[in-house]
Lab assay of single mutants.
Amino acid sequence: DYYEVLGLQRYASPEDIKKAYHKVALKWHPDKNPENKEEAERKFKEVAEAYEVLSNDEKRDIYD
């Protein structure tokens, strides 16, 4: 669930989505996790995908 990936509720505002994305993206950035790079890359891609969908009103409506 994209909301879960970003740690958000379904009623999150666009500002909340952006803030959550930056927080979680920093947490899972591969450069910040050199000891667990493969998992970090996978999680970072999930976070980016979730943000791409939830930050676009049209894609978010379809997802919801």
Rank of each mutant, 00 (worst) to 15 (best):
A48F: 09
E41Y: 08
A20L: 00
A12R: 01
I62W: 15
A50C: 02
A50N: 00
P14D: 06
E49W: 05
E49G: 06
A12E: 03
L8S: 05
S13W: 00
A48L: 01
V53Y: 06
Y2L: 15
R42E: 05
S55Q: 08
Y51H: 05
E52L: 07
A50E: 01
R60Y: 03
E49H: 11
E4H: 15
E35M: 09
A50H: 00
A48I: 02
W28F: 10
L8G: 04
L6W: 00
Y63E: 06
Y2M: 13
E4F: 03
E58W: 08
G7I: 00
E46M: 13
K43E: 04
K19N: 15
D16Q: 07
N56V: 07
A40I: 09
D61T: 12
W28G: 09
I17Y: 03
Y63F: 09
R60C: 00
E38S: 13
R10Y: 04
E52W: 10
P14R: 12
S13M: 06
K59R: 14
K59E: 07
N56Y: 01
Y11V: 09
E41D: 15
H22V: 14
E38G: 10
D1V: 02
N33Q: 08
E39K: 10
D57F: 09
G7P: 00
Y3Q: 03
K43M: 10
P14E: 13
N56M: 08
V47A: 15
G7C: 05
L26D: 12
Y11G: 15
A12G: 03
K37T: 10
S13D: 09
K27E: 11
N56A: 04
V53C: 14
S55Y: 04
Y21G: 04
N33P: 05
A20E: 03
L54K: 00
P34R: 10
K27I: 07
Y2R: 03
N56L: 03
K59P: 03
D16A: 10
D31H: 06
L6Y: 00
K32N: 09
D57S: 11
W28K: 04
K27F: 07
V47H: 00
D16F: 00
A20N: 06
L8M: 03
P14C: 13
Y51A: 03
E35G: 11
D1E: 13
Y21T: 01
V53D: 00
Y11W: 11
A48H: 14
L26A: 15
N36A: 10
D1G: 12
L8C: 14
L54M: 02
H22K: 07
P30T: 06
L6D: 03
K37W: 03
